[in-house]
Amino acid sequence: MRKVNLGRPPPGGSIESRLEWIQSALNRIEVASGDTQAAGSAIKQITGLTARNAQEALEALTTGKQQQSDLLDAIAAESMVADRYIYGDGADSVALGTIVSHGRAVLADPTDIFLTAGQYRIGQDTSNSPGRDDTVTGGRLGVDSGDAVLFLSRADATSLSLNRNSAGSVATFQQSGTAVGSISVNSPNTAYNTTSDRRLKTLIKDLDLSTAVERVKAIRLVEYEWDGWDGLTGRGIIADELQEVVPEAVTGEKDAIEEEWVVDGAERYLTTTKNHRALDQLADAEDAHKLAERISPQMWDATKLVPEIIGALQSMMAEIAALKDEVAKMKAAR
């Protein structure tokens, strides 16, 4: 089979840019004149399709069974042409994640990755949110409401592993581009950090310790059983009750519901409450229907109670010290 040199696709491009390149390459192949050897060679070269799949794609193109635009869709799905990822065949096949000379990662076995409605499902082709309200294992990399999202789920092993061979951060967190926290490692220890730099704060003043005492006294401690967990018991705090006392320690809204919708052909997740209804958020949608709903649980951050506990403890220590002074004075006056 004669080789046709079409150059290389643009490195790191989007699906659209790579398909544009493939379209341009196909336009330069003389399919209409019956140069099937050149066409077959080029299809295999630019897509990474196996010899069998390249031949099937060529036959579909040359016999008119499939339009060129449909072939491009098939190429995108079969060859995983997306960002910098593509897979090879035969002598060109290498292990997942290996970087080859032209800067593309090569997937040796693409059969476990599925491109479904613009979403990459990994190890499964049944769920866009594996492990969320189901027990599906696998992953999904895609876009929700215009933003990138990643789901990972495994049956009985770690889903995400982070490593660093020296002390320092293994993960950082930002909000609107500003650092707000990190997870760091140092020897055998792991630290979960939140920003507390003096330069990020204004109007700094001493805390009124009496307010800390009142807050701690107002927190109700409870014991309970977890619903749906076969009698599993716990001791702790109810989030919506804590929100009334230490609001900065609680996230979410009381009785909120998360709804999964398909809006104009794309999946969206909406958090709804009595005052924040889904229909209000979908006023501009041409077509929308709900797939499922689940509770959107409130959560609390125990670290936000540390200043209150320290303040209450300092207040009690000061009171104990004052009482000791009074006792000492009474003894001295005898």
Rank of each mutant, 00 (worst) to 15 (best):
S161N: 09
I237A: 10
E253A: 08
N165C: 05
E267S: 02
D255A: 12
P188N: 14
L221K: 07
G234N: 08
I183Q: 01
E223S: 10
A239G: 08
A179S: 14
S159A: 15
T178P: 07
V263M: 00
S166K: 06
A157T: 15
D208W: 07
R164W: 02
D240M: 11
I204W: 11
P247L: 04
V213T: 11
V216K: 08
V180I: 15
A171C: 11
W229K: 05
A239R: 07
S187T: 07
T202P: 00
R268V: 00
K254F: 02
K201Q: 13
F173M: 12
R198C: 04
F173L: 13
R220E: 10
V216S: 07
L242K: 00
T271K: 03
A191F: 08
D264I: 06
D230H: 07
G234R: 06
T178E: 15
E223G: 09
G252N: 04
V180W: 06
K254H: 05
L207I: 15
R198T: 09
K205H: 14
G231Y: 09
T251R: 04
S161R: 12
S169N: 13
L242A: 11
S161D: 10
Y192I: 11
Y269T: 00
D264L: 03
G181V: 13
A157F: 13
S176N: 15
I238D: 03
G181S: 08
A218W: 06
G177T: 12
G231S: 03
N163W: 06
I257W: 02
Q174P: 02
T251C: 01
E241W: 07
D255I: 03
I237W: 06
G181H: 07
N193Y: 08
R164Y: 03
E223H: 09
L162Q: 10
E259L: 02
L162R: 11
G181L: 09
N189E: 11
S210M: 12
D197R: 14
R215M: 09
D255G: 04
P188F: 07
T211I: 11
R235K: 15
F173H: 10
A179K: 14
D206Q: 13
W261G: 01
D240F: 07
A179R: 13
P188L: 07
R199D: 14
T190D: 02
A266H: 00
V222P: 02
Q174D: 15
A266L: 03
T190Q: 02
D156Y: 06
I237M: 10
E259Y: 01
S184V: 08
S187K: 10
R199G: 14
Y269P: 00
T233E: 13
I238H: 05
V185T: 05
A171L: 11
I219Y: 03
R268I: 02
D264C: 04
T195Q: 11
L242H: 03
R164D: 03
A191P: 05
I238K: 14
V250R: 04
D227F: 01
E258Q: 01
G168T: 05
V213R: 10
S166D: 07
E259I: 00
P247E: 08
E258F: 00
D230G: 03
E244N: 14
K201D: 05
